[in-house]
Design a protein around this nucleic acid. Structure first.
Lengths: 246, 246
DNA sequence: CGGCGAGTTGAAGAGCTTCAAGCCTGGTGG
DNA sequence: CCACCAGGCTTGAAGCTCTTCAACTCGCCG
């Protein structure tokens, strides 16, 4: 069911009642799929619906007039975008399907209804929002003050953790469909340099790459090198609030 | 009155009724001031109140373990931080007073009451939130894909516009209390290079600097050079929603 | 089998950093 | 009233990280 990804994700942020689950399952909306390499949202377009990623990877990005592209963030299954639609804003950036992407499209009123009806759902949405903003801040930190090597390691560790939260991947590895060009555009590097650093990290046995999978050989050492401190995920706060492991 | 800055700012985002204005004026809270160069919020601390800047400049920043500092954003009079407190999160970054800073401190319940009582206020808050996230994204873009020269110009143009919205500055100039070190830490540069570029921009007669004031000699040319496109402020959308100039 | 997108590698060069030193200005105290 | 100090600003020179340009390889799909 297309709402599964959303359910799985929201359960991570809040304890849902049976009513909540029913509300999400019966939520009015329609499925819409996007082929890989197609635009889901174009910068400048009027936003009129909330999207929930049910499947696949997408990227938010901005382009400068001369074509330079900056990837802002990665969207994974369970991610919701954009709550901006609530104030009828225009998109100030674009969203591109990196793989084939499945979405569930919901009218803002429907979504708003969901939030006002259930304080658990509303709270979960706040958490997702807080986390998303934290990702943006961490992205600024990484690209502003870290070396290419640190950026790439940090980025991979973040993605791994997010993929695990979304319910995919394994303990030390995950499928990573982003091209080196996309990684480069996310981290403010050239694809060439990104490639060199990735190869170097393999040579140093920090990571392994095979058929689109990334494996951390020694995640702790890597986290140490990159100064990856996952406190910005706010998992502790959620844990203590919910009284369970997250 | 300390709430003035907040009133002035919110009026920018929504048409307030007399009731709304009264609600803000009577909002329960206390004034608190911070001397320049003191911490307003420390990373890791439990957030328990909403702050509204009534006076002065502050910066949000993160530090790496080895001391490298990244400035994430600048806080100006009228800015509200942090709505994260609504989910009782811990601060994942710090806030530092750059000048002497006046704040109005409000309990989350009080603030939430304000939002639930008035849809205008709630809507204004959404706009501020959308705008703040847009600033973060623009910061990522700038630092990731622009040259030092472009970054500095873009940053100055953004600050000028924000200061104007906050109700300060003049058409082509504004008081800018950030040191070159802070600018450097915001833009992922060294203070030395920041200085060189600033001087170069003066020599090219793009800007003038005097006694902490920055003046744009030819704002249009500068915006062109930096590819500064203020659509991320979402002013058009607000204008059409409110039916007035903003 | 051919072509295309993605990945890989080398060599040269630009942009920014690092280290080092001097300057300017506003505030403090004798 | 002036000397002095500290923080911020300014400039030079050398060097490193990352970019640019160019070419080649690999794997996949029609």
């Amino acid at each position: 069911m297309p709402q599964d990804a959303m359910l799985r994700r929201i359960s991570f942020y809040a304890d849902l009642s049976d009513d909540d689950i029913a509300r999400i399952a019966e939520m009015d909306g329609r499925a819409r799929t996007f082929e890989r390499n197609t635009e889901i949202i174009d910068a400048g377009q009027k936003l009129d619906c909330v999207f929930i990623v049910t499947e696949g990877w997408a990227i938010r990005y901005k382009t400068l007039e001369d074509g330079r592209r900056q990837v802002l963030n990665v969207l994974l299954p369970g991610d919701i975008f954009d709550l901006q639609v609530m104030v009828a804003a225009e998109a100030d950036h674009s969203v591109l399907a990196v793989t084939d992407v499945g979405t569930w499209v919901v009218r803002p009123e429907t979504f708003e209804g969901l939030l006002t009806q259930s304080s658990s759902l509303s709270c979960a949405m706040w958490w997702m929002q807080v986390q998303e903003e934290a990702f943006l801040r961490e992205q600024i930190m990484r690209n502003g003050k870290q070396t290419a090597r640190e950026r790439i390691g940090h980025f991979l560790l973040e993605l791994h953790r997010r993929i695990r939260i979304a319910g995919f991947g394994k303990d030390e590895s995950f499928r990573m469909p982003l091209t080196q060009s996309i990684i480069a555009d996310a981290l403010g590097l050239t694809p060439i340099h990104t490639n060199r650093i990735l190869r170097q990290m393999q040579r140093e046995r920090l990571i392994e790459r095979d058929k689109g999978w990334v494996t951390f050989v020694d995640a702790e050492r890597l986290a140490d090198i990159c100064q990856f401190d996952p406190s910005y995920f706010h998992l502790d706060a959620m844990r203590s609030r919910l009284g369970r492991r997250v």
